[in-house]
Deep mutational scan, measured.
Amino acid sequence: KRPMNAFMVWARIHRPALAKANPAANNAEISVQLGLEWNKLSEEQKKPYYDEAQKIKEKHREEFPGW
């Protein structure tokens, strides 16, 4: 399985609240909304998620060399 990128790290945190706020929305609609919200963030706001994604990527590389 591929390691999460910065957007996926961010979305994992924000998806539950968005789903709760929009109970009639299906998963595809929630994903679209998450994408729109992510694109509104500044690079500075995204930086912690890029940092976390890098850590996940490095850990994945250690656990699965050659993947």
Rank of each mutant, 00 (worst) to 15 (best):
E52T: 06
K57C: 10
I30S: 02
Y50Q: 08
N27S: 14
A53G: 03
A21Q: 12
K46Q: 08
Q33F: 06
P23K: 05
W38Y: 04
W38D: 06
F7M: 06
P23L: 04
E44S: 09
N27P: 10
F7L: 01
P65T: 08
K55H: 07
N39M: 15
N22W: 06
L34F: 00
N22M: 09
E52K: 03
I13A: 11
Y50M: 07
K59S: 12
N5G: 08
K1N: 14
K59H: 12
P3F: 06
K46S: 00
A11G: 03
P23W: 01
F64I: 09
E43A: 05
A17V: 15
Q54W: 06
V32M: 13
L18G: 01
P65K: 10
I30E: 03
A53T: 04
W67V: 14
P3W: 06
P23C: 04
K47Q: 13
Q33H: 08
N27D: 14
G35F: 09
N26L: 06
I30F: 02
W38M: 00
Y50V: 09
V32S: 14
Q45D: 06
Q54Y: 02
N22A: 06
Q54M: 15
E58T: 15
W10K: 00
E63C: 06
W67F: 11
L36S: 07
E43W: 06
W67L: 13
L18A: 05
A17C: 07
A19C: 09
A17N: 15
A17L: 15
V9A: 10
L18W: 09
S31H: 11
Y50R: 12
W10F: 11
Q54R: 12
W67E: 15
W38G: 02
A28V: 07
Q45K: 07
K47D: 01
V9T: 06
A21C: 00
Y50N: 03
F64Q: 06
E29T: 11
E63G: 10
V9K: 06
I56P: 13
E44A: 11
Y49T: 01
V32W: 08
F7I: 01
F64A: 15
W10I: 00
N26Q: 12
S42V: 00
N39R: 10
P65Y: 12
H14L: 00
V9P: 02
Y50K: 07
N27E: 14
G35V: 11
L36F: 04
S42P: 07
I13C: 08
F7K: 06
M4Y: 08
N39T: 09
K57R: 13
N26R: 04
S42M: 03
R12G: 12
L36V: 14
P65L: 08
K55R: 14
K20A: 10
A17P: 05
K46L: 00
S31A: 13
F64L: 15
E52F: 08
A53M: 08
Y49K: 00
E58C: 05
E29G: 01
K59T: 10
A19F: 09
Y50E: 12
N27Y: 12
A11Q: 06
E37D: 06
K47V: 08
D51W: 03
K55W: 05
M8W: 09
A17T: 08
R12W: 04
W10D: 04
K57W: 07
L18H: 02
M8P: 05
P3N: 09
E63R: 05
G66M: 08
S31Y: 05
M8R: 12
W10E: 04
P16Y: 05
A6T: 01
K1D: 12
G35K: 15
L36W: 08
Q45P: 00
A28K: 13
Y49P: 01
K20C: 01
H14V: 06
H14D: 01
E37H: 04
H60Y: 11
E43F: 06
N22C: 08
K47C: 11
E44P: 06
A11W: 01
V32H: 03
E58G: 12
P16N: 09
K47N: 02
R12L: 09
K40M: 07
Q45V: 05
E37K: 14
N26D: 11
E29D: 13
E37N: 04
A6H: 00
Y50L: 08
A21D: 10
N26H: 05
K55I: 09
P65W: 04
K57M: 14
G35I: 02
K40W: 00
K20N: 14
Y49H: 02
W10R: 01
A6I: 04
Y50T: 06
A19Y: 06
A21T: 03
